[in-house]
């Protein structure tokens, strides 16, 4: 049974359709990455999956009692709000000090439970967000551009942490990124968005798909290969397929 499944999902922002006709599912333990240029509807899709955005059309079904660990793109904590790391990790449910220490450790952090959130570095902050998501003992971890603002080694080490977490907890991971070369190799499946689903499948297949190349060019191939160097793993059956219902509104001339 799927953890989250959408059918014909259409999302709008201020009356403007940002994403149309998405059939998507994620199963237990899968790592799925969503890629796409800015404004392609990636974040909107995630927000609809967690229930923060009401669909303009279609349906979103979440498994009963699904525990979601959500790591937002960023979190602007108002300077007037005093908040220690420990207090933040205890929102909304309280956890024991041992659990908190374990979650911080799992997120690759030293014990900074008593520090103020405002005093953390960008990398520490994102890892605290990850630790909070882990404390919910999630069935699925959802990360929205979680490495924004991190440099490349920082981002790579963050994603290695995610893989380790998935290994330990067995939770599914759904992430949005445009750090393609770092993210894609670690994924079971990649979904390429540009106002609709352009293409979908294993990282290799998506990376070589004409739709994907039209969006991102071929420049990421080398880096992808580089990253694969240190991570060898096998993939499931070929799930790659193309969507040929391209809407003329969504040209593919965008280049990165």
């Amino acid at each position: 049974m799927a953890l989250i499944e959408t059918r014909g999902l259409t999302l709008a922002h201020g009356g403007q359709i940002v994403l149309r006709g998405v059939d998507f599912r994620i199963d237990k333990g899968e790592i799925v990455t969503i890629v796409g240029p800015n404004g392609s509807g990636k974040s909107s899709l995630l927000r609809a999956l967690i229930g923060a955005l009401v669909p303009a059309g279609g349906t979103v079904a979440r498994a009963r009692g699904l525990r979601i660990g959500y790591v937002p793109q960023s979190l602007a904590i108002d300077a007037t709000l005093p908040l220690t790391v420990a207090r933040f990790l205890n929102l909304p449910s309280r956890h024991g000090a041992a659990d908190i220490a374990a979650a911080l450790d799992k997120a690759g952090l030293p014990d900074l439970a008593e520090q103020q959130m405002a005093g953390l570095s960008g990398g520490q902050f994102q890892r605290v967000l990850l630790a909070r998501a882990l404390l919910a003992r999630p069935d699925i971890l959802i990360l929205d551009e979680a490495t924004q603002g991190l440099d490349q080694p920082g981002a790579a080490s963050f994603y290695r942490q995610i893989e380790a977490v998935r290994r330990d907890l067995g939770c599914a991971v759904l992430m949005v990124s445009h750090d393609l070369h770092v993210v894609m190799a670690a994924s079971d499946r990649v979904l390429c968005l540009n106002g609709h689903v352009c293409c979908e499948g294993t990282p290799e297949l998506v990376a070589s798909a004409p739709e994907y190349r039209a969006l991102f060019g071929t420049g990421t191939q080398g880096a992808l290969a580089l990253y694969r160097h240190e991570h060898s793993h096998s993939h499931g059956p070929d799930r790659h397929h193309h969507h040929h219902d391209h809407d003329p509104d969504h040209g593919h001339e965008a280049q990165n």
Binding site: G51, G69, Y70, P72
Partner: peptide, 9 residues
């Protein structure tokens, strides 16, 4: 803190 974070919880 964040409406989305609340929604996910």
């Amino acid at each position: 803190l964040s409406p989305d974070l609340a929604q996910a919880s």
